[in-house]
């Protein structure tokens, strides 16, 4: 039974997609009054998304049925144990993803320059590069090169951060002759 339950778990993603395909139409238009602008016989702005939602529903239903079918037909006891998979460090992977998201938050508060400096250093340490004599120069020189290419040369309006950090970023740019 636990094996069958495990197989049924694989039916959760298609089930969720199927439910979403039925719920999403409610959120399609912001206010339904807008639909009054559509002329008679016209496809309108809801036609295409509705076709897509239908196709998504059909495909996910097909997938769901297949997963449930294989789960129910599977023998209750596992015939052969699956070959042991290579150990995969899930914790490292999810920490990595969290740090990437935090980098996005940091850019808005600390500004691109300081957030990038910090991120480069943290990522290197996470990835196993721990010697301070490698981490510091790579992070500092890397940030400087990125600043010169994207802020000075390409003139991209990257965030300067908020409060003290905005002032700090502007001073940094002035010190680097970017401004």
């Amino acid at each position: 039974m636990p094996r069958r339950a495990k197989l049924l778990l694989k039916a959760v993603p298609p089930a969720l997609i199927l439910i979403a395909a039925f719920v999403l139409p409610r959120f399609m238009l912001q206010n339904q009054n807008m639909a009054a602008m559509i002329g008679e016989g016209e496809a309108g702005p809801t036609f295409w998304p509705n076709v897509m939602l239908t196709l998504v529903a059909i495909c996910s239903a097909f997938w769901l049925v297949r997963e449930v079918w294989t789960a129910l037909r599977a023998p209750a006891v596992a015939g052969e144990a699956p070959p042991p998979a290579a150990p995969y460090n899930w914790r490292l992977a999810w920490t990595g993803l969290a740090i990437v998201i935090l980098y996005g938050v940091a850019i808005q508060y600390l500004g691109f320059a300081f957030a990038t400096l910090l991120f480069l250093a943290v990522w290197l340490i996470l990835g196993g590069v721990r010697r301070p004599l490698t981490v510091a120069p790579v992070a500092v020189i890397g940030t400087l090169v990125l600043l010169y290419v994207f802020v000075a040369l390409a003139q991209m309006p990257l965030d300067r951060g908020r409060g003290v950090f905005a002032g700090g970023t502007i001073e940094l740019y002035q010190a680097l002759r970017i401004y």
């Binding site: 990437v100 980098y103 996005g104 850019i107 808005q108 990038t116 991120f119 480069l120 990522w123 290197l124 996470l126 990835g127 196993g128 590069v129 790579v138 890397g142 990125l146 994207f150 390409a154 991209m156 309006p157 990257l158 965030d159």
Partner: peptide, 25 residues
């Protein structure tokens, strides 16, 4: 170069690139 260093810069470039498509955070 070690994958960690390569990866760090790919992520920064990805963020800059995603921002740069329409300059929209």
């Amino acid at each position: 170069t070690p994958p960690a260093i390569l990866g760090a810069f790919i992520i920064v470039l990805s963020v800059v690139g995603a921002f740069g498509v329409r300059n929209n955070f």
